[in-house]
């Protein structure tokens, strides 16, 4: 990392510090949501400066639109003003201070950022780079590591996303009973239909957002991207549609049942690919046996599990949005 990019990084992190301090200090939750948007942009730019394009893309896909929408949906259910703390939380302050000191102390043992002699750079990273070319033969090493070498971890992540979605739906309800109970479409007051400019432009852009989502999904082996990012982008386009046309219409396009099937189906597809490896005589999540050519098998496996990830992430995000939106409308 050259000196100038280091300076850019320090500048961005300083802005991030200011933003987070402001988030902590404000009592108005709407202001906090807006500042969180800025924090997300700053974090993505910092990832970008560190050359971590896949992570930056995730932050972009989730942080730019969806988290603001979900926060505002939650805010519509509560009051806008944060309750002042009744007393100074000395115990928690003390614990936080001690943990912070321990973490800072631990960083003294860390090798400097990007040091070539760090254990990670000396052993693991070269092995991943070498083996990716040899065993999987796709240009994006991050996708290879995420989907194949660390396939167990990613399966765990998808299950975490799925569990989070199920948890939110248990707390808030699917909203199906309230909005889909034969109620006629209330055309006059749904979404932003009266705002001509947003509506026309949104309609124009939704196909492009969907297209970009599929590009990120299926091009993830060659450039930054993959199932997590694509799922979030596709969810963003559906959420944009429901903002514009009202939630009921969005539920007509993709009914609640389909969303639930997507949530479950993606995880099942991922698991089924793993089991297929077992059945064909390999290990769980060992894709090499899926095709007569092990390299082709790996590529098939990665393609399939990325689709599984994308379906689950999109289903979970859209379901959570509907859960909040139907609560807010009731």
């Amino acid at each position: 990392m050259s000196t100038i990019t280091l300076l850019f990084s320090i500048f961005l992190l300083t802005l991030l510090m200011i933003t987070t301090m402001a988030i902590v200090r404000t009592r108005n939750l709407f202001v906090a949501v807006m500042l969180m948007g800025i924090a997300s942009l700053l974090i993505a730019a910092s990832f970008f400066l560190l050359d971590a394009a896949d992570v930056a893309l995730t932050e972009a896909a989730v942080g730019a639109g969806i988290s603001t929408v979900l926060f505002l949906g939650a805010l519509a259910l509560t009051s806008e003003r944060e309750r002042s703390p009744s007393s100074l939380p000395l115990l928690s302050l003390g614990i936080v201070a001690i943990v912070a000191l321990i973490v800072i102390y631990a960083t003294f043992d860390q090798p400097p950022l990007g040091s070539p002699s760090a254990p990670v750079q000396a052993h693991l990273t070269p092995w991943y780079i070498e083996s990716t070319r040899e065993l999987i033969d796709i240009p994006n090493v991050v996708t290879a590591v995420l989907a194949s070498f660390r396939g167990y971890d990613t399966l765990g992540e998808v299950i975490v996303v799925f569990t989070a979605g199920v948890g939110v739906l248990f707390l808030l309800g699917t909203g199906a009973s309230a909005s889909a109970a034969g109620a006629p479409l209330s055309e006059d007051n749904a979404g932003l239909r009266h705002y001509l400019i947003p509506r026309i432009l949104g309609r124009l852009l939704i196909p492009f957002i969907l297209l970009l989502g599929f590009y990120v999904q299926f091009h993830g082996e060659y450039s930054p991207g993959g199932g997590f990012q694509a799922g979030a982008i596709v969810a963003a386009s559906i959420i944009l549609y429901s903002l514009l046309e009202g939630e009921q219409r969005a539920l007509l396009v993709i009914p609640q049942g389909v969303l639930l099937a997507m949530m479950v189906g993606g995880v099942l597809l991922y698991g089924a690919v793993g089991v297929a490896g077992l059945v064909l005589g390999g290990n769980f999540l060992d894709y090499s046996v899926l095709d007569s050519d092990p390299v082709k098998g790996q590529q098939w496996g990665i393609l399939l599990i990325e689709i599984g990830i994308g379906i689950t992430v999109a289903g979970v995000l859209i379901s959570i949005f509907h859960a909040f939106a139907s609560r807010g409308a009731a």
């Binding site: 932003l192 400019i197 947003p198 432009l201 124009l204 852009l205």
Partner: peptide, 16 residues
């Protein structure tokens, strides 16, 4: 193209 489409629309939505 996308920037020139989205940012005036966002500005319009905000002003509204």
């Amino acid at each position: 193209a996308f920037l020139l489409l989205t940012s005036p629309t966002a500005a319009n939505a905000l002003a509204v």
